[in-house]
Amino acid sequence: MNAHAATPKGPKLPVAPPPTLWRLFLAFLTMGATSLGGGVIAYLRTGLVSHYRWLDDETFVELMAISQSLPGLNATNMSILSGDRLRGWPGAFFAALGMCLPGAALMTAAAFAVGIGGDDPISKAFLHAIAAGAVGLITVVLVQLGAKVLGEIADYAFVVLTAVLVAFLHVPVLVALLGVGALAIWWHRPRKGTAPKPVDPHFKDHP
C-alpha cells in the first residue's frame, strides 16, 4: 500500500495572506454550521486549502497528524492549530469557538426538546433507529481509520487487546490507553539502522 497515495500532487495553489480575526471567525463558524454528518475534516480541507487558500496541503496534512496523535476532537484540534498558524492565539481561540458553537447550541437545544418529547414513542422509534444507523457509520470510520493507521499484524493485536480490555473486561480506558499504549510504543521503538515507516497523516473522510 502506498502510504502517500492520498496526498494530492497537483499544481500548488498560491497561499493567500492571513485573514482578519473576524473573517477567520466567520469562516470557521460557517464550516462549523455546515459540516453535517461527521466529515468535518473534509469540510475543513475544502475550506482552508481549496476555497480560502489560507493553508497549503502540506501544512494541512502536518497539522492533521498532530491533531490525531493528541487527545481532543479532531475538528477542534485542527481549528486550534490552523487558527494559531493564521492569527496566533486569538486566531486559535476564535477558530475553535466558531467550529464548536453551532453544534453545541443545537445539541443544547436538543436536550430541552428531548426533555419535552422524550417519552413520545414516535421520537423514540426515530432515535433508536438513528442509533442503529450510527453503529453503521462508526464501523465505516473504523475501517477507514484502520486502513490508515494499522500496518502490521502486531498493530491489529493492539487494537483487539485494547477493545477487549475496555469493552469486555471493563478495564478503565485510561489504564488501557497507558498500558497498551506503552506496549505499542515500545514495539515500534526506534531501532538503529532502520528508517521508521511513515504514517500517512492525510485524513479526509469521517473523523
Binding site: 497528524a65 490525531q68 496523535s69 433508536h128 442509533a131 442503529a132 450510527a134 453503529v135 462508526i138 464501523t139 470510520v141 473504523l142 481509520l145 484502520g146 493507521v149 494499522l150 500496518g151 498493530d155 491489529y156 493492539f158 487494537v159 483487539v160 487487546l161 485494547t162 477493545a163 480490555l165 475496555v166 469493552a167 469486555f168 480506558v173 488501557a176 490507553l177 497498551v180 499504549g181 506503552a182 506496549l183 505499542a184 510504543i185 515500545w186 514495539w187 515500534h188 521503538r189 526506534p190 521508521p196 515507516k197 511513515p198 504514517v199
Partner: peptide, 30 residues
C-alpha cells in the same frame, strides 16, 4: 526519534478505543 513510535503506537490503541466504543454502542442499539 521516538516520534514515529509514539504516533504508530497511539494510532493502534486509538483504533482499539474506537472499536470498544462501537461495541458498547452496538450492544445498546442493535
Amino acid at each position: 526519534p521516538w516520534r514515529p513510535a509514539v504516533q504508530r503506537g497511539l494510532g493502534s490503541v486509538s483504533v482499539g478505543l474506537v472499536l470498544a466504543g462501537g461495541i458498547v454502542l452496538a450492544r445498546g442499539a442493535l
